[in-house]
Design a protein around this nucleic acid. Structure first.
Lengths: 197, 197
DNA sequence: TGACAAAGTGACCGATCGTGCTCTTTCTAG
DNA sequence: CTAGAAAGAGCACGATCGGTCACTTTGTCA
């Protein structure tokens, strides 16, 4: 049973790579199978259907997302330093983990936000979990803690800068996108810490 | 020759609608033809190929973008009020002009940013033009004018809030997204005006 | 080592894709 | 009104899509 799991993982990784490039709908099972080095029918020993593979791709991407971005910050105590690590890892995720395609979370969000179904539900759940984590993090940014509304406003802007960074870097070809995003985020932290209690 | 132009316009509008929903690649010529009420082969009297139609779609979307967002602000004198109108129209564009699909400019950007070719080039050119307009606008926000770097930082954040707004509203189901974006933008204008000369 | 399940292959299915062809209808300009 | 052009219909094509099935190979465990 070990061999199968390894192959399945390779399939999911390759499908995620292609989905980040062409979108989930744009991924053909033949292309994935060829890239992995098995036949198209061999693929069906690991997934019931293409939809089933899509679910595995979303799950896998969000797991990697957490590993790459949250894990390095998890050990630090809550506060500004930890938020800074998270933001920098998030930029790193977009730039280095998916250099050819751009962030698959963004791609999946844009593709699925208007397509109700289990796939969107799964992504929504994972993103809500991440949002909860970040809101908790922002609330602990300062003593006394930020209000819920303040934390929401801060996370809204943090996420916005991430999205803006990808658009600037990938669509507009802006080499300074990383710096622009970091500067905007640092300023956000500055003024958020300064809010009167 | 008049009839043809009208049909072509209907085709492009319908293709844009579907592209915003499923992505350009996800649009099939049969579906577009059916929705418009002509045969698939009749479609080819208006476009040489699917790629040709894609170009028309991008061009049309960016034209509507300018009409909806820039035109209502064009008459106003440069300054904060005009920027506020632009931002509000931009949100309106995302929310009301494409209620079922979300902003097609975002969708096209995410889809095309990793696909070199004339389609990406066209979108890039139009977005660069828009960016130029906005930078000029930000520079005139205050006397003495903002530096180029300050204007770039401001536009980066403005665009980010637009992207964050769509993600919050459509993917996260946040009914307050409009308010969050507007509040963030107003605060951006506040502190941008306040920068020491 | 032998048996059985898991993993993988190749041929094939019906549907749909973009696109070319010929033919008919419809519009429009003289 | 009429002739010619534009607009559109209908059909068929090769390719590719997701998916099935019978079969062979490979891995695992008693």
């Amino acid at each position: 049973m070990r061999k199968g799991e390894a192959t399945r993982a390779r399939i999911v990784a390759e499908a995620a790579r292609q989905a980040a490039l062409r979108g989930l709908t744009g991924v053909s099972l033949s292309d994935v199978a060829d890239a992995v080095g098995i036949s198209k029918s061999g693929l069906f020993k690991h997934f019931e259907s293409k939809d089933d593979m899509h679910l595995a791709v979303v799950e896998s991407v969000m797991e990697r997302f957490s590993d790459v971005i949250w894990k390095p910050a998890e050990g630090l105590p809550p506060g500004r330093a930890r938020l800074e690590v998270v933001f920098e890892r998030w930029l790193h995720w977009c730039e280095e983990e998916w250099p050819d395609s751009g962030c698959p979370v963004t791609a999946l969000s844009v593709e699925l936000d208007d397509q109700p179904g289990p796939l969107r539900d799964l992504l929504h759940k994972r993103l809500q979990g991440w949002r909860k984590t970040m809101l908790r993090e922002f609330r602990a940014l300062r003593e006394p803690p930020l209000s819920e509304a303040e934390a929401q406003a801060a996370y809204f802007q943090m996420k916005s800068f991430i999205l803006g960074h990808s658009d600037s870097r990938r669509m507009m070809g802006d080499a300074d996108a990383h710096r622009s995003a970091t500067a905007a985020f640092e300023a956000l932290l500055d003024r958020t810490c300064r809010i009167a209690a």
